[in-house]
Design a protein around this nucleic acid. Structure first.
Lengths: 180, 180
DNA sequence: CTTGATGCAAAGCTTTTGCATCTGC
DNA sequence: GCAGATGCAAAAGCTTTGCATCAAG
């Protein structure tokens, strides 16, 4: 039992949820992400380059959760000044293809990219209209409602997105102050 | 009681839902929509023009639920050949401002516009990745879950969007045939 | 030495804007 | 006649692409 517990701890986190043990997959370590990319590069007969390594490093190790192309470009430029936008775009496309990154669009016309935390991960977003802060959340109940609605419509759901737009704690306090 | 029933019928539809009477606001009739627009035009010291009338008519009376700017442009052009894209964009912006239309973006880079059915209406979308069909739905449970999540994060939600991407009945049948 | 990757500039797309002209009111 | 509306073309902003050159395997 204890040995099993430690084995499970290796690949997941354990949480008590409504009296049940819930297994939450562990976030991919850096090395595993790099391996995914390298494997994909070999499999598809692509090439490993300095630029790709630097973009990888900046995207997965130094930048935050929701990054614009501009932010990544500026960040990479500090390490490798000859970098071009096209390479950033092409490399992000590569990350998407091998399942390491997701592209998001929150309606301001510029795509945001986020590292995928573990295989098959899904989460949704709270987006602050004041300070543009983005909070991630996951909610099983919403997922199952959605699937039920889909079934009623004979729809085969591949993925979904739920975005809640509003004001975060500090922004709504400021709003009320400004209004009152 | 009967008089009350008829009064309620005037402004809503009545449906039995889990044993309760449920009041569903009536879809705005054409005339009321036109009045909203005209009132807004007067209030804001704007002007009523032929172009606006034709765009209004095409958008609310002849086209479907999810229309691109291109579709609306082509449709209006048949009635008024000198129309320009700028006028379409500016008029749709006007419709949004007076709460008559919503802008949607389902990720293909072109906005889609839909008439608002009644004041404060909200619905979500099932989007078929095969035939691009869009199905609307509303689900109270999802709404309340969302609000609960928001409250947990001390978020003041202004609006939300939920989009389920997948394959509709006929497209998923075709997919399975193609795959098998 | 072959094939893929890169950087640059140009092009693509959707949407917005500046401006001369037109038209409600 | 004045303020707002229109049409056109140009610009803006993000993303993709063509092409000569570079570099990995």
């Amino acid at each position: 039992m204890i040995i099993y517990y430690f084995y499970v701890k290796l690949i997941t986190n354990i949480k008590i949820y409504k009296g049940y043990l819930k297994l939450i997959p562990k976030i991919k370590p850096k090395s595993e992400r790099k391996k995914s990319l390298d494997d994909y590069i070999v499999k598809k007969h692509l090439k490993s380059t300095t630029q790709r390594d630097i973009i990888f490093d900046q995207f997965f190790n130094y930048l935050g959760q929701h990054v614009t192309v501009d932010e990544l470009y500026e960040s990479v430029k500090r390490q490798y000044s000859r970098i071009g936008y096209a390479t950033i775009y092409r490399t992000l496309k590569l990350f998407k293809e091998c399942g390491l990154a997701h592209e998001r669009n929150f309606g301001d016309g510029r795509a945001k990219y986020e590292p995928v935390k573990f295989d098959g991960e899904h989460h949704d977003h709270l987006i602050c209209l004041g300070c543009e802060k983005i909070i991630e959340f996951a909610n099983n109940e919403i997922e199952s409602c959605s699937l039920r609605v889909a079934r009623l419509n004979k729809f085969d759901v591949i993925n979904h997105k739920l975005e809640l737009y509003g004001y975060c704690d500090s922004c709504s306090v400021n709003n009320k102050r400004a209004a009152g």
